[in-house]
Each structure stands twice: as structure tokens, then as C-alpha cells.
């Protein structure tokens, strides 16, 4: 007997699957998000090759760069008040942002998923205590918690890894409750399913049931939260840097720090120091959020409803695709 045909492995990968599923406007947003994020990742990977200068470089063979120099051939985006090259710092900043996202999101996924699984599966007083704690942390301004955590971890200033770790851990503190809530809710739902009971009947032990049976069926919303958190991680890192709790300029390039130093520049009409690092933040967050938003729409049946109601899939495509794709071209 032939097994039911499944789509190829490639087509079942998270993003690829959604890309095929999407149409029209949605696909436009998803593609735009993927392109921006791709550029961001490439820049981070190739920063040493692309950047004209080092992130902490103050002079070349012609002498000091000079402070607050307007954009010129030597410094395409000008120099900062501290005498750094703006373009180089914007490019190197992608590496810092990328590192923080990776460390923060991995840490919070591991801890949050683990706690959520335990809490949802075991239940009882552990569950109740963890839920109250998670809700308390969740309701609190994330930035304030991150500030407190950053002070503890780095005492305010730090090296590249110290700074990345501080930012990442402080963001993790804030994100754990989010993963915790989602995974817990899913675990509670899944653990009452028949297959979990059958596993218990044949004598599987709790850890095996939790990690093999429940966890694998509880992860459907993770990609969505992942994108939301990745963009929030960048914003929090930048905010920490802006308030002066980020990474020192000699250890790594960080956009929030550069923006902080640009506050005074704005008053004297110097635009190139704030605008470029700021735009970098906006673009990266925009790219990641566009992906997340599209995944969200594709996962939410309420937002998909209308397309299914159209007479045939072809009709729906014809109705929304070409016009909206043009529109996206105009917008982005």
C-alpha cells in the first residue's frame, strides 16, 4: 500500500513551507522580510570584508579621522563625535546585534521551554508558583528589568563578550516568561491527548513522554515567537546602549551607544550620526517583524478565512496577487 504522499523535506521546512503557502500581499511581505533579514545576516557574516575601517579605529595613515566630519569620499557616512567612522560602525554593529539575538533567544528558548514543559506536565503547586512568577515578570516593563539585569551582570560597562552576555542575559530574563507561557499552554493541551495516555500505559517514563511525545507536539508557535523576540532583542539591546548600559565602543560597535552619543549632535543639526545607526535598527527589526507578521497571518485562520471563501484558489490568487505585489514594490 502506498503511503500518503508527503511534501518533500525542503517544502516542509518552516519558512519554505509558509512561503509556498502564501499568496499575494502576504507573500510580498514575507519575501521583503526574508530579503532584509538575508542582507542583515550577510552583512554580519562579511563585516570584516565590507567595513572600510575597524569599529574602534580612530586614525589611518593620513592621521586622525576627526570628529563629526560630514559624509565625504573618505568617510561615506561621516564620522561620530568620538571620531569613529559611521559606516564602519553601522556595519560592525550587525555582528553585535546578531550575536545578542542568537545568545538571547537560544538561552530563553531552552530555559523557557524546559520550565513550561515541567510546569504544564507536572502541574500542582510548582505550576501555580511558576505561573504567578512568570506573569509578574511578564507584566513588568521589559526595559527596566533589562537595566537591572545589565547592572548586575556587567556593572554597567564591559568587553564585547561581557557586553553581549549582559545584554543577552538581561533580554533572556524578560523572554523566558513568554516561551514559558506558550509551551505550558500547549503542554496542558497536548498532555490530555490519547497518544500521551497510551505512552503512559505502555510504561514510558515521565521524562521520555515529556520530551518525546509532548514537546514535539507543542512547538508549532515557536517560530513566530522566535521572530518577535529576535526583533525585541535588538530593540532592547539598542535601548540599553542608548541609556549607557551597553557595550563600550572600543569592545564592539553597538547602534544604541552611537545613538546615545548623537543626542547632542542633533541639537547642532548634525544628522549623519543619529540617522544611519537608527536606520540600521529600523531595517533589521522591520525585516524580522515582516517575517513574523506573515507567519502569524498564515497561522491565524481568522485572517486566512476570506481567501478560502473565494470560489477557487486560482480566483483568490488572481484577485489579490498582481496588484498587491506592485503595491509592495512601491511601499518597500
Amino acid at each position: 500500500m502506498a503511503r500518503p504522499r508527503r511534501a518533500s523535506l525542503l517544502a516542509r521546512l518552516p519558512i519554505v513551507h509558509q512561503l509556498r503557502q502564501s499568496v499575494g500581499l502576504q507573500r510580498g511581505m514575507l519575501v521583503a522580510g526574508l530579503v532584509i533579514t538575508g542582507v542583515f545576516l550577510l552583512t554580519a557574516a562579511l563585516a570584516p570584508l565590507i567595513a572600510p575601517y575597524g569599529f574602534a579605529q580612530l586614525r589611518d595613515e593620513n592621521g586622525l579621522f576627526g570628529a563629526q566630519q560630514p559624509p565625504s569620499a573618505g568617510h561615506l557616512l561621516g564620522t561620530t563625535v568620538g571620531g569613529y567612522d559611521v559606516l564602519s560602525r553601522v556595519i560592525w554593529g550587525t555582528q553585535t546585534a546578531f550575536l545578542v539575538i542568537v545568545v538571547a533567544v537560544i538561552l530563553s528558548i531552552f530555559i523557557g521551554v524546559f520550565l513550561g514543559l515541567i510546569s504544564g506536565y507536572i502541574g500542582g503547586w510548582i505550576d501555580r508558583v511558576l505561573v504567578v512568577v512568570a506573569d509578574a515578570v511578564f507584566a513588568f516593563p521589559t526595559l527596566l528589568l533589562a537595566i537591572v539585569a545589565a547592572i548586575v551582570i556587567s556593572g554597567g560597562q564591559s568587553s564585547l563578550w561581557g557586553g553581549v552576555a549582559a545584554a543577552a542575559v538581561s533580554i533572556t530574563v524578560v523572554f523566558i516568561p513568554q516561551y514559558f507561557r506558550v509551551i505550558r499552554a500547549e503542554t496542558v493541551r497536548v498532555k490530555s491527548e490519547a497518544f500521551v495516555e497510551s505512552a503512559r500505559v505502555i510504561g514510558a517514563r515521565a521524562p521520555r513522554i515529556m520530551f518525546r511525545h509532548v514537546l514535539r507536539n507543542s512547538t508549532r508557535t515557536l517560530p513566530l515567537i522566535f521572530t518577535l523576540n529576535a526583533s525585541e532583542a535588538i530593540l532592547t539591546l539598542a535601548a540599553l546602549g542608548f541609556l549607557g548600559f551597553g557595550i563600550q565602543p572600543t569592545s564592539a560597535a553597538e547602534w544604541g551607544y552611537d545613538l546615545n552619543k548623537a543626542i547632542a549632535d542633533v541639537t547642532s543639526g548634525i544628522w549623519w550620526t543619529p540617522v544611519f545607526p537608527g536606520l540600521a535598527i529600523v531595517l533589521v527589526v522591520l525585516g524580522i517583524t515582516l517575517i513574523g507578521e506573515s507567519l502569524n497571518d498564515l497561522a491565524d485562520p481568522r485572517l486566512r478565512a476570506r481567501r478560502r471563501l473565494a470560489a477557487t484558489p486560482a480566483d483568490a490568487v488572481a484577485e489579490s496577487a498582481p496588484a498587491s505585489r506592485d503595491a509592495m514594490g512601491e511601499v518597500l
Binding site: A238, L259, V275, G278, I281, V282, T289
Partner: peptide, 13 residues
């Protein structure tokens, strides 16, 4: 996606 402080700086500028 725009950090408040960046939006603030641009508006101010």
C-alpha cells in the same frame, strides 16, 4: 520597529 529614541531624535532634528 523604530526605537522611540530614534524616532524622537529624527523628529527633533
Amino acid at each position: 520597529a523604530t526605537p522611540v529614541f530614534f524616532a524622537g531624535l529624527v523628529l527633533k532634528l
